[in-house]
Design a protein around this nucleic acid. Structure first.
Lengths: 224, 224
DNA sequence: GCGGCCTGTAACCGTTTTGTAACCGGTTCG
DNA sequence: CGAACCGGTTACAAAACGGTTACAGGCCGC
């Protein structure tokens, strides 16, 4: 499993590469953004770890560029005071992020989680029961119904619920996953998003069968 | 969710414990490193918060020792000028750190993040005897009965009682755990909450078999 | 620039949850 | 005995929550 790491901090780059090779991955090292793009093309890694702050091409740019051609999982690295950038990263298509400093253990755990989440060997449609989510072209198909087009946010919501299909996902977790850190009291956004998604995927949106409410806790997907 | 806190600063220890109990965690307090190790063995907490500077065993040592036997998430606390120790801590397997002073809000956010990362956000159903508490979607199942939905406060109460199943839990402790510090005379709230919970989980709420009263002391859960 | 979606924001409504008060019966103790 | 206290219960008010409607600004393709 190849992992491309891009960071201009030499020490950190080596540390990460070492950690990953210890864990059985094949690290590919890029000291800046341009190298990252070149190596991405030549090495075809299975996962990317991008620092945001890099000379020349920022991690942002790299992420943006790569997302135009691939849905490979991307993890961003960021310093503690760049949290607004985070939201932008997620919007650009990054899948997870880590705030520096972090422990090698943590990085490893998150990378594993990302691989698992991405399904890795199967980067195609994410499915569970009668729900089939096609991440690439933003559509879902429920049972034998016609496929429905989703917006970016609806996709994120459904993705998170589908990964945890059958189990309740807390509102806070959803908020963080969909919008990045947000004023914690902002339940209205989630309320809205759930409502809009239900209009699209439920037979009778006022009696939800798929996207159910766990009052006081969160929402869950019923997939039988 | 039990959290072991080790700090020799009494005030800070109490503050952290209070903050965590407010947030629904079960704090366990250790005034020094040795106590931390003892309590770690006896209480089996789900997360550790360790101050680095402590008389006797430093947080450092404690971290090292515990890592030899467990991969429980560890957060280190450090004063501003101890940053070198930090790096060593992280290398030793700590998962995150906070620099003093910090706000309770911050601590809480980081602890939550840590739990999530460790994948123990919803550490599955907490069970004892015939009582099965599902924290993630706020339900309990008693024996083979249908699962019952609980409110946030009912969940906290039952959680506290279940963790101490069979033993009496004092009213004051319950009050603190559920509402945080409160006008101490406010037993009415607890009375109410117990009453409401009994309506949901007891076969005959007027003859409680599960949630029993220890007159003058508190309540306890009978799980046989 | 226009019209279309997508997203964020506010307001309203009915329901659930939580807080507060009052009453009841039992026990304790001066 | 009677006042004080305790826990259980009933009743009601206040606050929070979730669903819904409506609307405005942003963005994109035409």
């Amino acid at each position: 499993m190849k992992v491309l790491i891009a960071d201009d901090d030499r020490d950190l780059l080596e540390l990460i590469a070492f950690t990953l090779s210890q864990a059985g991955y094949l690290p590919v090292k890029a000291p800046d953004g341009n190298a990252a793009l070149t190596l991405f093309a030549s090495e075809a890694p299975d996962l990317l770890v991008l620092d945001i702050n890099m000379p020349g091409q920022s991690g942002f740019r790299v992420c943006e560029t790569i997302r135009t051609q691939s849905s490979v999982p991307i993890m961003m690295l960021t310093a503690r005071n760049e949290e607004e950038d985070l939201v932008r990263s997620l919007e650009l298509g990054a899948d997870d992020y880590l705030t520096k400093p972090f422990s090698p253990r943590t990085l490893l755990a998150r990378i594993k989680a990302l691989m698992r989440r991405a399904g890795m060997e199967n980067s195609g449609p994410l499915a569970s029961g009668r729900i089939q989510l096609n991440v690439e072209d933003h559509t879902v198909q429920i049972g034998t119904e016609a496929a429905v087009r989703l917006t970016k946010l609806e996709l994120r919501l459904l993705q998170m619920l589908l990964v945890n299909a059958g189990r309740t996902v807390g509102s806070d977790r959803l908020l963080v996953h969909i919008w990045g850190h947000r004023n914690s009291g902002d339940r209205q956004l989630l309320k809205q998003l759930v409502h809009r998604l239900r209009q699209k995927i439920e037979k009778d949106p006022s009696l939800p069968e798929i996207l159910q409410t766990a009052t006081g806790a969160g929402y869950k997907l019923v997939v039988e």
